[in-house]
Design a protein around this nucleic acid. Structure first.
Lengths: 198, 198
DNA sequence: CCTTCAGGTTAACGACCGCTAACCTCCCTG
DNA sequence: CAGGGAGGTTAGCGGTCGTTAACCTGAAGG
């Protein structure tokens, strides 16, 4: 995957700022004028790029879910045939990268889902479910003793653990990105191990 | 603590329904008319019991934080002098009880804090900080090797794990409350153990 | 050089929502 | 048995917000 070097499009600027604002003050707490101001244009100018405020949220949430799922599938494919243990580590690593690099999106991801139109919400839920099931399969390979409902619960709980990054204080009070990532990784493995030991 | 047997007051009804609605659709997503309807009165009737919509949210959040802190202090006092290990277990148990019994409140707790007036938000933050510090102290007794910043991060992350209950599916798809509580408890201990093993 | 169109602008409409005003109706109490 | 307060009601005001309408402008293309 080539790293982007070209300038972000106006659409992307808007999405990024909207994500930040939605995460800070909630979907209903942010006005379109604010979003516009954040990218240097004013309120209604946004409608040249999006059908409405809802559309921005929808694109954000679908994008997040899709990105997570795609990344996980890729990691699974890359490690095809390898030890399930390593695959689980790779999944954890990917999720942590995302949680540390895109904190606003992680926040939105489980906070504003209910504000979506039915069709969009169904789509997001479906992507999320696939992502979870993917983890569940790998987890049950590593810990064959764990029953499926328990495995699903364990996966959701570890997501809760990994998604706690927004609560870990602003960057700077953290012990450094690498150390935080490592700590989260160890804790996730520890939690899974405890769930697997019946 | 004696279990309440008398009927809930109107104020308590309102708070409970408001908590549920706020958790479902967000603070700004719920109108006062809806809250009123949920308790059988209509919109402005709420103002006989609360100064405004903000006041309901404030009372809910301050109440949650206070309850968590008070409960933790009580458990700490009860186990005074006992093994730190057992105290940690008691803290975890208390938090899980809360997360399982008052899911809407847990949801609100880290979702709508920014909607509070400055003074209320400061109060809630102060209560939360005390609660965290209490856990950090106990955790560092159990795992003396862990540095304080890492311990704080670990505590926040385990809160994320325990507070994942709203994502565990509606009661019924769960393997039963007792089993869920036990699983969460084991995972929390596993995560802490992994954080403590440097 | 004229045209076109992408991407802005401001004005304003309509809906919604928090809150207040004004009024009503029990029930408790002196 | 008056009267007063607790706890409702409906009507409506004022502000906010998403969205649309109408207009403007600069740059690219024939």
């Amino acid at each position: 995957m080539a790293t982007r070097t070209d300038a972000p499009t106006r659409r992307e600027q808007i999405l990024k700022e909207a994500a930040r604002l939605f995460a800070e003050r909630g979907f209903h707490g942010v006005g379109v004028d604010e979003i516009g101001a954040a990218v240097g244009i004013s309120g209604p100018g946004l409608y040249r790029h999006f059908a409405g405020k809802d559309a921005m949220l929808a694109e954000l949430l679908v994008g997040i879910s899709g990105q997570l799922l795609t990344g996980a599938k890729r990691r699974l494919a890359e490690a095809d045939g390898g030890p399930a243990d390593a695959v689980l580590d790779s999944l954890i690593e990917g999720h942590i990268d995302f949680a540390l690099d895109d904190r606003p999106l992680i926040t939105l991801h489980d906070r504003e889902l209910d504000r979506l139109r039915d069709s969009d919400r169904k789509l997001v839920r479906q992507l999320q479910r696939q992502y979870v099931e993917l983890w569940v399969e790998v987890l049950r390979e590593v810990y064959p003793g764990i029953a499926e409902p328990a495995a699903r619960s364990a996966v959701h709980s570890v997501f809760g653990l990994l998604n706690s990054t927004p609560h870990l204080g602003r960057p700077g009070s953290l012990p450094g990105r690498g150390a935080t990532a490592e700590l989260l990784h160890r804790m996730a493995r520890g939690a899974f191990a405890a769930a697997g030991a019946e």
